[in-house]
Design a protein around this nucleic acid. Structure first.
Lengths: 227, 227
DNA sequence: AACCGCTTGTGAACGCAGGAACAAAGTCGC
DNA sequence: GCGACTTTGTTCCTGCGTTCACAAGCGGTT
């Protein structure tokens, strides 16, 4: 078995996606070869860690030379399962949903939205990125027709759970949730949570801590001297 | 020192932000008391882990009873540094930037945008959420006047680094980056990266792996039977 | 006043991720 | 054809995060 010689840790999978992005950029720029050091620098990680990540795919570089850009890119894409474009459905076409539907980055990275859904009648029928917004009633039909296995939730928090239920009932097996609630999904369905304000709050904490330690250093430097 | 009796792990900080959200909801619903089990369930984490997270704040519950909702909420908010609203600036008012500027969740969670910036002349002057989009030239002035320490980058990838440079030069100390590139920031500046398509790619991998293991189970069941 | 049930807080063990150092292997130069 | 250099792949190790299990403490009850 060429792929998945062993279980790949999830942290590695997330970094592989980053490497794939960098490699795609390098390939588009005409580069054919790259070393682990350069790739790690562009991805913002440690070179040794990058090599360890790639070792999960089996040997894919040439010692003394480096990695072939196109080959490595294709292999990572195959392992991640984005060699072919994957159909996704998006529920909740508010500001964030519209931004997601319009985001070109998804299309160039192996994902395409095959259905945009919203419960509000005044949003249904609008066209976003060349696609119409559909009523929730068409969800089952579209998921079945397109074999979409990934659903994205960009609704308000209070309806996210019911949307999750409808998506899983329709056959979706993976859910990316932007609503700030923890979802309960049946076993066998993967849920990933993205909470934008959590990220900001972590930053606020780091910033406050930075200020606190700086203040403490100014406040009682003699203690450190005498200690 | 009541806060920071020891260094708080970053993973714990991220979960504290989630607890804070749940607690705020409980308090708004009139609840005055909650147990670690119920709180953990609402946050989607392990009860023991939740108690360990809270133990970093010092004792804040009553044995046999649970936690007082309002007290715990306020203590977490103080530790995270969001007791008072923090000023942020946002650069890049495309689809995503507009969604972020309009997102009410930030305001209710201790963050307010005090400046929206974009380089495109046709976007400058538009009003979003009651605020005008300003030209990049006003960045230094606004950061200085508002003492904003947090900057959010929602620009295309190719200009994100230069925006990062300008933000840090203006005095911003924490950056939340939505552009799919690794940023180089000077020491003392915290950068957090949110890559939306990485999340989708992790889901795609998990889904593919689920399919692969299921296929393997169908392919060679006799081996497991004979083994 | 003493007991009992419930819940918190903490200690220990396990597994995992990250980093540094080293050996293997291939290429370039002579 | 051979040696030296470069770069990968791997191994070890250290530290962190997570989970389980138990002791400590408080309120209600008899």
């Amino acid at each position: 078995m060429p792929s998945s010689r062993s279980r790949i840790p999830e942290a590695t999978v997330a970094r592989l996606a980053v490497y794939l992005r960098v490699l795609t950029g390098l390939a588009d720029g005409g580069r054919s070869n790259v070393s682990s050091g350069e790739l790690a620098s562009a991805a913002g990680v440690n070179p040794a860690g990058l090599r360890k990540d790639l070792s999960h795919l089996g040997p894919c570089g040439v010692r003394g030379v480096g990695y072939e850009v196109a080959t490595l890119r294709d292999r990572i894409a195959r392992v991640l399962g984005v060699e072919r474009s994957r159909p996704c459905v998006l529920v909740g076409i508010g500001n964030l949903g519209t931004a997601l539907a319009d985001y070109a980055g998804f299309g160039s990275r192996g994902f395409r939205f095959v259905g945009l859904f919203d419960a509000a009648p005044d949003r249904v029928g609008r066209r976003i990125g060349g696609q119409p917004v559909r009523p929730m009633g068409e969800l089952d039909e579209v998921v079945a027709a397109t074999a979409a296995t990934i659903g994205v939730i960009a609704t308000p928090a209070d309806v996210a759970q019911s949307v999750c239920d409808r998506l899983t009932a329709a056959g979706v097996r993976s859910i990316l949730n932007f609503a700030p609630v923890a979802l309960n999904a049946p076993a066998g369905v993967d849920v990933r949570q993205v909470d934008l304000s959590v990220e900001l709050q972590v930053l606020a904490f780091l910033g406050q801590q930075r200020g606190a330690t700086a203040a403490a250093a100014l406040e009682a430097p003699t203690v450190e001297v005498t200690a």
